[in-house]
């Protein structure tokens, strides 16, 4: 959402993604319906949380597939920081290049990589710039992106939710009209 306009239609996703779903709980982990501004880093990411019995489910939106991935990456750290993404400053950056056999698996492997960076290196990201996601004729997908964030500091950052892993459960990436939406369930 580069211009900050509330362009994500709330009805999107009601066709397939919300079928047989529990009721949507907007912004469980933050203060707004769809995130427009996450504080100091001015990240424009759009996502919403959906109630799930034991774990955390979110839907990430974007007008391009790249924006959709940016929103999903940001949503993951919003979960971990319990809505306090504004505590993360973009002091350092990290480049990611990944390829995978499908768009869904690419998202799964990228989010898993982000989680690994946090667990092993203590890196927290508050913003992402996904340069491009390409899909070849075989269905293989590649991603190149940069994450902006900083080292975990327990005096500044409070980890509220322990994400154990990203799941493929109910994972879907859909494109309808001019909006992409990715649905992700993470094990907590």
């Amino acid at each position: 959402m580069t211009d900050g306009s509330p362009s994500v239609p709330r009805t999107f996703g009601s066709q397939d993604l919300t079928k047989a779903e529990p009721s949507v709980v907007p912004r469980t982990f933050g203060s707004q319906d769809l995130k427009e501004d996450v504080g100091s880093m001015k990240q424009k990411a759009a996502y919403e949380f959906v109630d799930h019995m034991a774990d955390v489910k979110f839907r990430a939106f974007g007008r391009t597939i790249e924006e959709c991935f940016e929103s999903a990456g940001t949503a993951l750290f919003d979960v971990m920081l319990d809505g306090r993404l504004d505590t993360v400053e973009g002091r350092s950056e990290r480049t990611f290049e990944l390829s995978s056999g499908s768009l869904e698996l690419l998202l799964y492997e990228w989010l898993s990589e982000l989680l690994y960076c946090f667990e092993v290196e203590g890196l927290l990201f508050g913003r992402f710039e996904v340069e491009c996601i390409k899909e070849d004729t075989e269905g293989d997908c590649t991603l190149r992106c940069t994450g902006f964030g900083e080292q975990f500091n327990d005096r500044v950052h409070k980890i509220g939710v322990h994400v154990k892993g990203i799941t493929l459960h109910e994972m879907e990436i859909k494109h309808a009209g001019d909006v992409f939406v990715a649905q992700v369930v993470v094990d907590t």
């Binding site: 698996l105 892993g165 799941t167």
Partner: peptide, 23 residues
């Protein structure tokens, strides 16, 4: 678990297994 979910996502196709949920 994370590592093998990727491996098994490909294995499902290789062994032609039909599943209602990718997980």
């Amino acid at each position: 678990c994370t590592d093998f979910i990727s491996v098994f996502e490909r294995a499902v196709k290789k062994y032609n297994i039909s599943l209602p949920d990718k997980q």
